[in-house]
Amino acid sequence: MKQIQVLVVDDERYAREELIHLLKDFNGIEVIGEAESGEDAIVKSLSLKPDVVFLDIEMPKMNGMEAAKALQELKKAPYIIFATAYPQFAAEAFRLEALDYLLKPYEEEQLEQTISRVQKQFSHMDNAPQAASGKLSIETDGEIHYLHPRDILYLAREEKFTKIITANKEYQVRTTLKELEGRLTGYNFFRIHKSYVVNLSYVNMITPWFNGAYQLKIEGREETLAVSRNYVKALRSRLEI
């Protein structure tokens, strides 16, 4: 497994230094930078392209939640781990598909569990090319199903679940949209919104909406999907429009 590159974001210098010091004890983790604000986190992420961002929540101007939403819109969106002294933000954090929620002061066991979760996530991604010749395994209602990616129309994130839509059936799983997107690398899938990843083979129409956004129609489906304006240019390029 390659080194997992990490950016540490906190407005308190000593908090950054403590977390960086702790992370250096873990094999496979490389701290490539630090940032002192939400705005700085976005700038550093654009240049450094970290795999994971450890993100404080209570920061002046742009707080951690706002920064996380902006980071998710990047072309190479990092995984987010919130690192904060405030447990009351946990529900909102997981609605943003945070990989984990780490409470200060940091406990060794909790940090080990977080790093284990990070490494497990990237081991799935490392295995994606080998899986590309087979099927996507998903677990729902205690059963394991094997889906061929070509049969999937699109994926949609709804609260704590991800819906996998095929022509004949819908599956609801707890796996995050980002993890499924990573496992489908190598197939014709494209993220059009923080909540949607579509199979481009089934796109039959996109139409302007408002504020530079678009709406997208999938072959055989009645509903329309929102296309974030941040993804419109790349989508049109992929569709050769």
Results as ranks from 00 to 15, higher is better:
1 M>C: 12
2 K>R: 15
3 Q>P: 09
7 L>H: 05
8 V>H: 04
9 V>M: 06
10 D>F: 03
12 E>Y: 08
12 E>Q: 14
15 A>E: 12
15 A>L: 11
16 R>Y: 05
17 E>T: 11
17 E>S: 13
18 E>K: 12
21 H>N: 11
23 L>N: 06
23 L>K: 02
24 K>R: 15
26 F>D: 08
29 I>S: 10
31 V>G: 09
31 V>W: 06
35 A>Y: 03
36 E>F: 02
38 G>T: 03
38 G>P: 02
42 I>M: 10
42 I>H: 05
42 I>N: 06
43 V>E: 14
43 V>W: 01
46 L>P: 07
47 S>E: 15
52 V>Q: 04
53 V>Q: 07
57 I>T: 09
58 E>P: 00
58 E>M: 09
58 E>W: 05
59 M>V: 01
60 P>S: 10
60 P>D: 06
61 K>F: 08
62 M>F: 03
66 E>Q: 11
69 K>N: 09
70 A>M: 13
71 L>D: 01
72 Q>A: 11
73 E>R: 09
76 K>M: 07
78 P>D: 10
85 A>N: 07
87 P>F: 01
87 P>D: 11
88 Q>E: 15
89 F>A: 05
90 A>E: 07
92 E>V: 04
93 A>E: 03
95 R>E: 13
96 L>F: 00
98 A>C: 13
100 D>F: 05
100 D>Q: 10
101 Y>K: 12
102 L>I: 07
102 L>N: 02
103 L>E: 01
105 P>I: 07
108 E>L: 09
108 E>K: 15
113 Q>I: 01
113 Q>C: 00
117 R>W: 00
121 Q>C: 06
122 F>K: 08
123 S>W: 00
123 S>A: 15
124 H>V: 04
125 M>I: 15
126 D>S: 13
127 N>V: 02
127 N>Y: 11
129 P>W: 12
129 P>T: 08
131 A>T: 08
132 A>W: 00
133 S>K: 15
136 L>Q: 03
137 S>C: 12
137 S>W: 06
137 S>I: 08
141 D>F: 14
146 Y>L: 15
148 H>T: 04
149 P>H: 01
150 R>V: 14
152 I>R: 07
153 L>S: 10
156 A>R: 06
158 E>N: 10
161 F>W: 12
163 K>Q: 13
163 K>D: 11
167 A>N: 09
168 N>E: 15
171 Y>Q: 11
171 Y>H: 13
171 Y>R: 08
177 L>S: 06
177 L>G: 01
178 K>C: 00
178 K>Q: 15
179 E>C: 03
184 L>M: 13
185 T>W: 10
186 G>A: 09
187 Y>C: 08
188 N>L: 12
189 F>P: 09
190 F>A: 07
191 R>M: 13
191 R>Y: 07
192 I>G: 07
192 I>D: 01
194 K>T: 09
195 S>R: 13
196 Y>K: 07
197 V>I: 15
199 N>H: 13
199 N>L: 11
199 N>E: 05
200 L>T: 02
203 V>K: 00
205 M>H: 01
206 I>A: 08
207 T>L: 10
208 P>G: 10
210 F>S: 14
211 N>T: 03
215 Q>F: 04
216 L>S: 04
219 E>M: 05
220 G>Y: 00
220 G>C: 08
220 G>D: 03
225 L>R: 06
226 A>C: 07
229 R>V: 13
229 R>F: 02
234 A>L: 12
236 R>Y: 03
237 S>T: 13
239 L>Y: 06
240 E>Q: 15
240 E>L: 12
241 I>Q: 15
